[in-house]
Design a protein around this nucleic acid. Structure first.
Length: 734
DNA sequence: GACCTGCTGCGGACTG
C-alpha cells in the first residue's frame, strides 16, 4: 500500500486533479509522521522542492478526518510576501476541501482578523510579530482560539536559527503550549542545511534527538561554478582606455567595467540574480549595466533591487522576474529569501560573499527546474601589487576568502549560530509580553516559563533575579501586595505601542563628531574602545568618547594613521573560514573553478604569503608596526583587540590582521606569552572597556553589569582567544 | 565592510 493511500479521499482527489503522476519522496515520507499527530518533524528540501505540499497534504487529511472549531494549524513565516504566496497556494487546496485558510500580518485588513477571532477555524499563516501581538493582547481568549490546535508549521525555518526572531519564535511556541497545557507537534520546513542536529535542537529545544528529519540525499542537483579574478589598477589609465574602447561615458574603475562587461555578455537574454555587497554598489552596477545596454543599442534588462527602494519599485522588478521577458536583477540580500521570483538560470556574486550560509541560500535560487544545473559565477577584484603594500593587503584576502568559502560550501559546511548567546533583550521582551498576556504573574512562574522549561535556559536563576530587579529599578515592572509582578505604567506604554512586537532592532547609525562638527554616520557593530583608531572618509581618527544613548562618537584626528587601501573581509567571518584560508595559502591545490586570471592571482597571493614568511610565523614586523595573523574569526580578533587595548597597546584591526604600533615583534610575542599564562581575563572585565554595547532592541534597559555579561557572551570568544594567545607565543620569529 | 525582516487599536471622515 502506497503512503498516499492513507490520505483522506478528498486529498487524494485533489492530487489527482493536479495531474500529478505521483508524490515526491519527501511528500511520501512526511505522510505517516504527520498523520500520527504526535511527531516533531523537519522537512528539508531545496526551494520549490514541494515542502509545502509535503506538510500540508497530510495536515489537510487530518483536519478532514477530525473536523472541529478553533484554529487548528498555525503556520509561521518570516515574510509578509511569503505569507501571501503561501496563502494563495493553500487557499486553492483548502477551498476544494472546505477548510479555511487565513493570512494574518500587518497588511491584512483588520476585519479579516476580527472575523477569524469571532469564528476561529482552519489554518492561519502568521508572522512571529503578529503572533506576539495576538498572544500579548488577547491572553484570556487564547484558550478558546487555540483549543484544538493540532500543528505548528514553520516555513523557511533556517532563517530563524540563531537570531533574535528565532528565540522569539521558540518562546512563542513554548508559551502557547504552556497556556494550552499540552505539547503541539512542530513541523519545520527548511532548506537543506549543513547541520540538521542544530535545526532539530532549534525546533524542540532540549529534545532535538526526538525530532524526525526528512532530508533525502537525492541525486543532489548538478552545480556549475566559476570564479573570475580581476585586478584593480592603481592608476586610472586602464579605466580610461577601457571606457574609451567601449565608447562608454563612465567614471567607473577598470575592474568594475570589466566585470560589468562580462555580466552583460553572459547574462543578457535570460533571468539571473546578481548579488553585490551593498546598496550603493547595487545602484552603481545596475547603472553600469544599463550604460552597456544603451551603448549596444539593445533594450535594458538590468534592474536594481534593495531595501531602500520604495516597495512599488521593488515589486515592479519582482513582477519582471516572473514575466516572460528576460530580466537581470542586481540586488542585496533582499532577494535571498524564498519570495517566488520564478525560475532563475544563474546567480552571480560580485565581491567576497558574506558567509558560506549566504552562498548556499543564494545558490538555492538557481537550477530549480528538474535536470538543469545550479550555476554560480563569482567576480572578485583585488588590488594591483605595489612595493609598499602591507602583507594583509598583498596576500589578496578577499580572493582567498571567497575560494575558502566555496570549498567549505562544497564540503557541506555552514556557519553555526553562537550557542552561548543569552539574548537578554529578547528575554526582556518576552517577560513584558507575558505580564501583559496574564495581566501579572509571580516571579517564580516567569522563571519557570522562560528559563527553567523555556527557551532561555542559558540564563541562570540568579541572573534572572538580577534582570527582574533591574526592570523594577527602571520602573518597567512593579510588585503588588501579594508579590505578583505587574507592568508599571511605563512598561504598559511600551507593550501597548505597536513597535513592541518585533524582537529585532532596526539598526541605528552612529554620528561621527570631530570638534563639534559632524563628519557623517556609520553603522557600528565593531567594539569601540577609547583611544582606538578607526578609518572614516579616507582619514584616520582616534575614538575619544562614545555616547550610547545619543549614538554619537567623538573623535580626534590621528595624524600619520595609515588608511588601508583594502580591508579584505568585513565583520562576522567564522574561525573555520579563516583556518581554511590559511590552509589554502599553504597548499598548492588549484581549485578547478578558477579562470586564468584568478589562477594567476591565487599564485601571486601564495607567493606573497611565503615572501612574508606567513607560513611559519604569525607575528611579523612591517613599517614600524607588528602585525598579528592568527587565522581566527572576527569574534576572536575582536576579543584580542579589546584585550590589547585594555593592556595599553596601540592596536587596530586591519582586515584579517591586528596591527600594533610602537611594539616590536619579539616584545609583543613575549607579552602575549605572559598574558597567555595569566588566568583567563573575566569576559565581564573585557566588556567593560567597550563603549558601544547596546546592540539589541531592549539592551538599553539593562544595568551595566547585565549589559557586560550579555555582550561578552555574544561578541567575545574568551577560551579560543586564550588558546590563540598560547599558539602565538609558542612560535618562532623569522 | 555590509544586509534584511516586522508592527495594534482607535477615532473620525466619508460613502451608499
Amino acid at each position: 500500500m502506497a503512503a498516499a493511500d492513507h490520505l483522506h479521499p478528498e486529498v487524494q482527489r485533489w492530487i489527482y486533479h493536479q495531474g500529478w503522476t505521483g508524490l515526491r519522496p519527501i511528500q511520501e515520507l512526511a505522510i505517516a509522521p504527520i498523520l500520527g499527530g504526535q511527531q516533531d518533524l523537519i522537512i528539508a528540501a531545496a526551494t520549490a522542492g514541494g515542502k509545502t505540499e509535503a506538510a500540508f497534504l497530510p495536515i489537510f487529511s487530518h483536519l478532514l478526518n477530525h473536523p472541529g472549531a478553533s484554529i487548528r494549524v498555525l503556520g509561521l513565516s518570516p515574510l509578509k510576501a511569503l505569507i501571501n504566496d503561501q496563502h494563495r497556494r493553500l487557499l486553492d487546496m483548502g477551498e476544494s476541501m472546505g477548510i479555511s485558510v487565513t493570512a494574518w500580518h500587518g497588511d491584512v485588513a483588520s476585519h479579516r482578523k476580527h472575523r477569524l477571532l469571532q469564528d476561529p477555524q482552519g489554518i492561519v499563516i502568521i508572522t512571529p510579530e503578529s503572533l506576539e501581538a495576538l498572544i500579548a493582547r488577547r491572553g484570556p481568549a487564547l484558550g478558546r482560539l487555540f483549543q484544538r490546535l493540532n500543528y505548528i508549521v514553520i516555513d523557511e525555518m533556517h532563517v530563524f536559527i540563531g537570531s533574535e526572531r528565532g528565540r522569539q519564535l521558540q518562546s512563542l511556541m513554548h508559551r502557547l503550549e504552556y497556556c494550552l497545557d499540552r505539547s503541539i507537534p512542530r513541523i519545520g520546513l527548511s532548506a537543506t542545511l549543513g547541520d540538521m542536529d542544530l535545526a532539530a535542537e532549534f525546533l524542540r529545544p532540549g529534545h532535538g534527538r526526538q525530532v524526525q528529519v526528512i532530508n533525502p540525499a537525492g541525486p543532489g542537483g548538478q552545480l556549475r561554478l566559476q570564479l573570475r579574478g580581476y585586478q584593480r589598477s592603481l592608476s586610472d589609465q586602464a579605466a580610461v582606455e577601457l571606457a574609451a574602447s567601449q565608447a562608454l561615458h563612465s567614471e567607473a574603475s577598470a575592474d568594475d567595467l570589466a566585470m560589468a562587461q562580462h555580466l552583460f555578455q553572459a547574462l543578457r537574454g535570460s533571468n539571473n540574480l546578481i548579488f553585490v555587497n551593498g546598496r550603493a554598489r547595487v545602484e552603481q552596477m545596475a547603472d553600469l549595466l544599463r550604460l552597456f545596454s544603451e551603448q549596444a543599442r539593445v533594450p535594458n534588462e538590468f534592474y536594481p533591487h534593495h531595501g531602500s527602494l520604495a516597495k512599488h519599485l521593488r515589486e515592479e522588478v519582482e513582477d519582471l522576474l516572473r514575466s516572460d521577458l528576460p530580466a537581470n536583477v542586481v540586488c542585496t540580500t533582499t532577494l535571498e529569501m524564498g519570495i517566488d521570483v520564478g525560475d532563475v538560470q544563474s546567480i552571480a556574486q560580485v565581491g567576497s560573499p558574506l558567509s558560506v550560509a549566504s552562498i548556499r541560500q543564494r545558490l538555492g535560487r538557481s537550477g530549480r527546474r528538474a535536470g538543469e544545473p545550479a550555476i554560480a559565477r563569482f567576480y572578485v577584484s583585488v588590488p594591483e601589487l605595489a612595493a609598499d603594500m602591507p602583507p594583509q593587503e598583498a596576500i589578496h584576502p578577499e580572493l582567498v576568502q571567497t575560494i575558502a568559502m566555496i570549498n567549505l560550501l562544497l564540503e557541506r559546511w555552514c556557519e553555526p549560530p553562537v550557542p552561548e548567546k543569552l539574548q537578554l533583550s529578547t528575554l526582556i521582551q518576552q517577560l513584558l509580553s507575558l505580564l501583559s498576556q496574564y495581566e501579572g504573574l509571580k516571579a517564580q512562574d516567569l522563571w519557570e516559563i522562560l528559563g527553567e522549561t523555556g527557551p532561555f535556559q542559558q540564563v541562570s536563576a540568579e541572573l534572572f533575579q538580577d534582570l527582574l530587579r533591574c526592570l523594577g529599578q527602571r520602573e518597567m515592572i512593579q510588585q503588588s501586595g501579594d508579590r505578583t509582578l505587574l507592568l508599571s505604567p511605563k512598561g504598559e506604554r511600551i507593550v501597548n505601542h505597536y513597535s513592541f512586537y518585533s524582537a529585532f532592532q532596526t539598526p541605528e547609525d552612529y554620528e561621527l563628531v570631530h570638534l563639534g562638527r559632524t563628519l557623517g554616520t556609520l553603522p557600528q557593530r565593531i567594539p569601540l574602545v577609547p583611544q582606538m583608531r578607526i578609518v572614516f572618509a579616507g582619514q584616520s581618527w582616534q575614538v575619544e568618547a562614545v555616547d550610547e544613548a545619543r549614538k554619537i562618537i567623538e573623535v580626534s584626528s590621528a595624524p600619520g594613521g595609515r588608511v588601508p587601501r583594502f580591508s579584505g573581509g568585513g565583520g562576522g567571518i567564522h574561525s573555520h573560514v579563516r583556518q581554511a584560508m590559511y590552509h589554502l595559502y599553504c597548499s598548492q591545490d588549484q581549485p578547478p573553478y578558477l579562470d586564468p586570471m584568478a589562477q594567476r592571482l591565487l599564485a601571486e597571493a601564495r607567493e606573497q604569503f611565503r615572501a612574508f614568511h606567513l607560513h611559519r610565523t604569525s607575528v611579523l614586523g612591517f613599517a614600524s608596526q607588528s602585525l598579528i595573523f592568527c587565522w581566527q574569526g572576527d569574534r576572536v580578533l575582536n576579543t584580542l583587540l579589546v584585550l590589547l587595548l585594555a593592556k595599553g597597546l596601540k592596536a587596530a584591526k586591519e582586515g584579517i590582521a591586528i596591527a600594533v604600533r610602537q611594539c616590536d615583534p619579539p616584545t609583543l610575542v613575549a607579552q602575549l606569552g605572559q598574558w597567555a599564562d595569566e588566568p583567563m581575563s573575566a569576559p565581564l572585565d573585557l566588556a567593560r572597556s567597550v563603549k558601544n554595547k547596546r546592540l539589541d532592541k531592549y539592551d538599553y534597559l539593562l544595568s551595566e553589569d547585565l549589559l557586560c555579561h550579555n555582550y561578552a557572551l555574544s561578541e567575545f570568544d574568551v577560551p579560543l582567544t586564550w588558546q590563540t594567545l598560547r599558539d602565538l607565543s609558542s612560535q618562532d620569529l623569522p
